[in-house]
Computed example of a mutant assay.
Amino acid sequence: MTTDTMLTTGGSHGGDDRDAAFGAGGDEPYAQALATDGHIRLRDPDRPGHDVTFDVGRWNAPADEVDLSLLEVVDGPLIDIGCGPGRMLVAAGRFGIPALGVDVSPAAVSIAQHAGGRAIQGSVFDPVPDEGHWDTALVIDGNIGIGGDPAALLERCRAIVRPGGRIIVETNADPDADRTYDARVVDADGRTSSEFPWAEVGQRALRRDARVAGLRESQRWTVAGRSFCELRRP
């Protein structure tokens, strides 16, 4: 499989703003947190006091037991949507699984590549290498929120995996979560990103979005406080 393609990061959707990057722009708090293993908060300007906190240090750390469990049943090439600093790519390599990560953050992609993962910078809403031939797509760590349109993201994933392929989605811990909004990332020092579209999706909403995308749910589970759903392309 080829993995040396550079994707574009915007402008391919006639003004569509789904390509706006998580935590980018402004004071670049996400890039700062990647460099320092810091914490960041996802802020909805319309809901003060309801920030969602992410531990970037966990994303920088090696894959944990829950992460590794997602790879145990993968038996073909894997693509990680919103791969971040690449812990799942490195872990997949140890399992002998061909893997590629896609992320809009140049800082995250650089870290993933230096860690030994194969990653490209760009938007999942643009063509990806070997589209339609991936066995499994990972959409974890809240990345179902990318673009603020979960059904559209799942439609892209459906096109990216092979017929019969799997999409493993990590959903919000609240099964009733179902929100889209314009978010900003803020770090512990108050550095703030530009605004970008985002979504929070629980398992009930994911079932609806999967149907819209032409996917069928094959299983769902919760482990160590994290909730997952496996979707299949017909």
Rank of each mutant, 00 (worst) to 15 (best):
T3E: 15
L7T: 12
T9K: 08
T9M: 09
S12Q: 06
G14F: 10
R18W: 10
A21T: 05
A24H: 05
D27L: 06
P29I: 12
Q32N: 07
Q32I: 04
L34F: 12
R43H: 14
H50P: 05
V52G: 00
D55I: 09
G57Y: 01
G57H: 02
E65F: 01
D67G: 00
D67V: 00
E72Y: 01
I79D: 01
P85H: 00
A91K: 01
A92D: 01
G96T: 06
P98A: 14
P106I: 06
A115V: 03
I120Y: 03
S123L: 09
S123P: 10
V124H: 04
D126I: 07
D126K: 04
E131H: 09
H133N: 09
A137F: 12
V139G: 01
G145N: 07
I146K: 01
I146H: 05
D149S: 14
L153S: 06
L154P: 03
I160Q: 03
P163E: 08
I167D: 10
V169R: 00
V186F: 05
D187H: 05
S193D: 08
F196W: 11
P197H: 11
W198N: 11
E200I: 13
G202D: 03
G202N: 02
G202C: 04
G202K: 03
R204W: 07
R208Q: 08
V212H: 06
V212C: 04
G214V: 14
Q219L: 07
V223G: 02
F228N: 03
P234F: 07
